[in-house]
Structures are given as C-alpha cells and as structure tokens.
Design a protein around this nucleic acid. Structure first.
Lengths: 370, 370
DNA sequence: CGTTATATGGAGAACGTTCTACATTTCATC
DNA sequence: GATGAAATGTAGAACGTTCTCCATATAACG
C-alpha cells in the first residue's frame, strides 16, 4: 500500500496529540543481539563480556579472544542507551546556535575528524538563541546520558553554564570566559583577530577606519562581538588613531539592512570598515554595489570568519580566518580529557590570521566628492 | 586551577586511548530527581508516576494532580536513555550528508518548528557521503533507541535503507524512491523543478540551452541529480528542442572548476544554462565574471535550491526554490505518524517554484563574436 | 608441598524507566 | 444489599548494560 501525494498547496496532515502514546507502542524488535547473546555464544558470563567491552582489568587473553570472536560473529553492537544508564554512552553532544553561522561546518568537521577513529559519536542539537531553548536542549542532552557537551557560541550566562558543568563535562567554543573554573573555553583570540584586521588596514595606508559591530543584545564580555570591539579599539589606539568609532547593526532582521544603507549613505562615511562577521560584511558588499559605493576604491572592507562565501570570486572579501576546524579539534580533545577525569579548567586561545582579498587593497587617494 | 594557553602553532595534546576507560568512570551524580523521588513525594507508586508520564489509561484526576504537582515541585525530568530502553526516548534522529548543503538550514528549521511544541527532540548526526559512515551513524542512532530517523539526501542504496526501516521508522528527504514500501519519501518534485527552469528560459526567449549536472557517482535514479536531468530532457523536448545537452561536473573537487572553465571557454557555449545546484551555479557565476563572460548577456544562468547565497545582491542568481522548511515539516509529521504505528508507506512530492533574479532576464540577440 | 600475593571470572544488584498482570476499589443496575 | 462491569493503583519483572564484591584459580617463592 503506497500513497503518492503531490503538494502544491493544501492542508497539511494534522499532527496528533503527542502525549497520546497509549495506542501504539514501539514495535518489539526481538532479533537484536544483546550482551546475553554474546555471553551465551562465547560460553562465558555477561559480566565477562562487559569487562571485555570496557577494556576492564582482569581479563585473560583467552577470554578476550573468545568474546571478541563471538562479538564479530554475531555483529553485536551495545545499546548506547543501556550503556549510558550505568557507564558511558560514548556520545558527545554539540549544541549549535544558528546553523547558518559560517563557522559551523568547519567546527563540525573538526569534531568529527577527531572522533572518527574512536567509539565516540557526536550528536548535534540546534537551538535558537534564547536562554530557555538552549537550556532545554542542554537538559535533553544530559537526560540522554551523553558523556560531555561542546557548546558552540552559546548565549547563556556563565553561571548557568557552570551549573550544568557540575552535572556533565562542558567545553565552550566562541565564548570568552577565561575566568570560568567549571568548564573549558576554546576560542580564536578575537581581540587579536580584530587587531590584525586593523593592522592590515593601516598597512594598506588607511587611516579613516570604523568598525561595524552587532547591537546591544550581545552585551556580555564573554561574547565574541565584544572581544572584537576591544581588539579594534586597542589596535586603533596603538596605530595612533585615538578615536575608535564603532557603529552598531541591530539584531532585528528588517532593520539590519537599513542600518547598513544608512552607513553607506553617510556624507562622512569612512574609507575603510572592519565588520564583526562575514555574514554582515557580505550583505554590506551587496548593498554597496547596489548603492554605487565601490569596494575597495570608496570603501575597503574586512570581515571575520573567512566563510566559504567570502572566498567566492563574486564576493572576494578579505576576512579574518579563525580556523573553525582546529577549534573543533581542540575542543573535542579537551572534552575527552574532561570526560576522562580532568577537573582543572583550561582556556585556550588560537591566533587567527588574515586572508587578504580584493575588498582590501592599497589605499589610493581617489576622492569622489558627492 | 586555571590553564590559559595561546596557540599559534605547536603540538596538540595527545588524545589518549579511548578504550581505556578503566581509570576514571563517570562521576556519580547522586542528586538527580528520579521517578522514585517523585513517587515518594506524591505518596504513590513508581508505576503510577510512569502511567501519568505516559498518559496511560487508568489514571484518576486526583492521582494525576498529585503526581503533576510533585513533578513540578521537584523539577523532575525523565531520563531519555532509560525511557528508550523500554518505551520511547522521544527523540528523532536526523542524518545529514554534507552540512554545507544550502538546503539544510531550512530543513532543520522545519523539523525543529514542528517538534517545538512537543516532547520530541531532534538530534542531528553529520556524516560524509560514504556508505560505511552513513551506515555506522544510522546504527548509532538505532543503538541510542531513537524513535525514528529522517535521512536527508542519503547516498545509501534503497535496499540498505529498507533493511534499517525494519528496525526503526524512517523517512527520507531528497531521495526519489517512490516504489519503496518500507520507508517514506518526501521530496520536491525535482523533475518538475527542472521543467520549470527550462520553461522560464524558454519564456525569456532562450533556445540555446544546456544543463550542467553532476558526474557519474550519482548514478542512481533515486538521486535528485538524475531526477533533474529527466525533467530537463522532458521540458526541452516539450519545447520543441529535441536535443537536451547535459554536461557533467566531476565530483572530485580540484577538477570541478576546470570543467566549468572549459564550459565557459567553449566557442559553442550555449546562451543559457540550467545548473543542477546553486553551489555549482554560484561558482560558475564567479568564474564567468573572472573570464569576462557577462551574465545574463552572454550566458543566462538558473540554479537550484534558492540558497541564501543566491539571494545576495552580489550573486543575484535565479534559482528553483524547493522550500526546505516545508519539506522538513512534512517529513517530521510523516515520521511521527510512522512512530505512532502507520506502516503503509507514503511518497510526497512538493512542487517547487522559480525565484527570478538578474541571472535570468529577457533574451537579447547581442552577438559578440570572438 | 605450603604459603602468600595477584589475577580472573562470575553472581547479584544497580541504573531509571516501562510493561503486564491482577487485587482492590468504584460505579451502575436491579 | 448483591451482583457484575469497569476503573484504578500497585507489585514485580523486564529492558541491556555496568559495577562491586568475592570465591577461586594461578603464579611466585621458600
């Protein structure tokens, strides 16, 4: 019985009440190979098989061979759920906010690369940037008996993360709290990254430089946005340019482009801009083209993230590369280390680098008044 | 004890033998509220609390109130791992191949949107497009006792998916096997999408049209690539243009751009091209710009996916929109329906639409020889 | 061979929940 | 009040694995 439906429009099938699980329970899968099957096949006890699986002390080579042979013959795979109930589930949870963050594919690739040779598996949960949703997702991961969590650019306050870290090992990526004692942080040095951007602009001869940052909701010093602002100010001061003007792009979507258009339309628009993230920098480039602002002749632009879109010939955005892949790798190793018992916190900063492209070339004094 | 490390380069901490879990086991968390705590607090049995949690038959309002009150007072959250061992874990696994697929953020948003009001949680696993890795990830999800799986653009043969579908409810997205009886398929009508692209090109006056598709590894009729080719051929024939030339972009990365450059450099290059996916269409636009091929004057381009990058002013790619969000929603509802007991398979096709942009405008006979 | 130390494998309970069977209570009818 | 049907709440076992304790076997030494 096959149903083929074509949907152009029309009503969607109604989703029934989720809580009514009375009518049909999980069908019984009676053919699963369990630890009992293996023990029986190998002629040993269940506890012996478990000892072999856990690489526990007190297993002879003869027993190990018998059990391993039975496992291979039967194709036994332990239930992660059952394992997690008493021991380890060999699962690492990764929490992502905003799956479109250009950073993320690389981080995930880094995580998966480190875990690939192991028995660990990464499971990803995607949340919106709301404290309640993030909290709920972390709780679900704990309820799942995952062995540890990597939180990527979490928006939660430090004290809430610390409360969770009492329950489960946690490593954060893209979260600057070097004072945290209950969890680890792994970051690109976002201050240094912004400094590098400014230094590159200065080296190309620009002096009239501003930063475009993100609006007020990202108020905490732990956020990458604030860190990049700090670095921007420091590099501007160090470059002898006392003033360090920072414009804010509102978080609310319909007004972001308005703010960028206003920036581009300014009579006193600077000659160079460091934008806090590629996502916004690329939008800025698009609007600049639309409004007849030439990049880099009228406005040099440096972004942050070195996203794959930035590298497109059509976009050609100079950008700070924070190597998400390496951050993912480092975070994963740190988490495994925590799972294995380390309690002293570690805070790791990786130095970013600039990838230069056509949005940033040598400054030319090509005044275009009006 | 805080450790702060800055990494520019240098050796990474060595990852210890994962199988040696002897030295340190999961720290005991003795303060977790369990079903026993709730039962004790409410003065009822464990089974009573379980019945309330499962919304099972045979629960009085008085008992329900007592238990619900205790649950709220204690902040009880059931262990998903323990639940999955006998009943449902209320978890849906989503398997993604290639996290950069422009389709995916929308699909995930659709899935999460449907699940948000429920007790279900989506957990995502990311795999490379290799049968062994995909298989291993699906097995892990089964071992985790997830209630069902959504496979997004899987590369596995149908019979392997069917074998898994005996063990766990499965819905596929972006996988055209309308004959499958063991699992559901939810797709954009990729044939129709390609037809729409060709029809739009014809309507704009183009007659010299080719398709750029993906190379031979995507050989199965279930793949979206083949489906788009079928639609292309049909629409070309229907438009009275018998020949339906389809060029192939190799899968291997360094040679993809070579193939596109060769296409762009052809003396007999067509006046319009339908590209199988935005990812390659956007690269084609970049190379066209670099090689002085004007879009759309020399070459009109239509992509597929309506990715967010296609919408950028800098890119401005006309593209077929398959509404990943809706596909995610439909797939999720279908999966819940399967989890609740439906065994008859369903195959759902959603009609895509064209989003027109500057890469596709009215054909003008502006011959530029040489 | 006897003694001591160490290694090994298994019994039984734990982990946190769901499921089944059924004793008891409640409700409706005469 | 008696009878029968339906509703209710609980006891005990199951789910699949890990952990702890300890009886026994093995190895080393005098």
């Amino acid at each position: 019985m096959v149903v083929l439906r074509v949907i152009g429009d029309g009503p969607q099938p109604q989703l029934r009440d989720f809580m009514s699980v009375e009518d049909k329970q999980k069908p019984q899968r009676n053919d699963r190979v369990t630890i009992r099957t293996v023990a029986s096949h190998a002629g040993v006890s269940v506890a012996a098989v478990s000892k072999v699986m856990r690489n526990a002390y007190g297993v002879s080579e003869a027993l190990r061979a018998k059990v391993t042979d039975a496992i291979e013959t039967l194709g036994y795979r332990p239930s992660r759920a059952a394992r997690g109930l008493r021991g380890r589930s060999f699962t690492i949870g990764v929490l992502l906010i905003d799956i479109r963050n250009p950073f993320l594919p690389e981080v995930i690739a880094g995580v998966n690369g480190v875990l690939a040779p192991s028995h660990y598996q990464a499971m990803i949960g995607v949340s919106d940037a709301r404290v309640q949703l993030e909290t709920s997702l972390i709780e679900s991961m704990i309820d799942y008996k995952m062995d540890g969590l990597i939180l990527v650019a979490p928006r939660l306050p430090s004290d809430i993360i610390a409360k969770f870290a009492v329950q489960i090992p946690i490593v954060t990526v893209g979260y600057h709290d070097a004072g945290a004692t209950a969890f680890d942080t792994v970051n690109a040095d976002d201050q240094r990254g912004a400094e590098i951007a400014v230094e590159a602009l200065l080296a190309c001869g620009y002096r009239d430089i501003e930063m475009l940052s993100l609006g007020e909701r990202e108020g905490h010093a732990v956020s990458v946005v604030r860190q990049r602002e700090i670095g921007f100010r420091r590099a501007m001061q160090r470059g002898g340019l006392g003033a360090a003007p920072i414009g804010k792009i509102p978080i609310a979507s319909p007004r972001r482009e308005d703010a960028m258009r206003k920036f581009l339309a300014r009579k006193d628009r600077p000659r160079a801009v460091f934008c806090w993230s590629d996502l916004d920098a690329i939008t800025l480039l698009s609007l600049a083209m639309e409004m007849g602002v030439r990049v880099p002749e009228d406005l040099a632009v440096v972004g942050y993230d070195n996203s794959s879109t930035a590298a497109l010939g059509l976009v050609n955005l100079a950008s700070i590369d924070q190597s998400g892949r390496e951050l993912g790798q480092i975070a994963t190793r740190a988490l495994i280390s925590r799972i294995e018992g380390r309690t002293a916190s570690e805070h790791i900063l990786q130095v970013p680098s600039l990838v230069s492209r056509n949005s940033l070339t040598r400054f030319k004094d090509t005044k275009h008044d009006g």
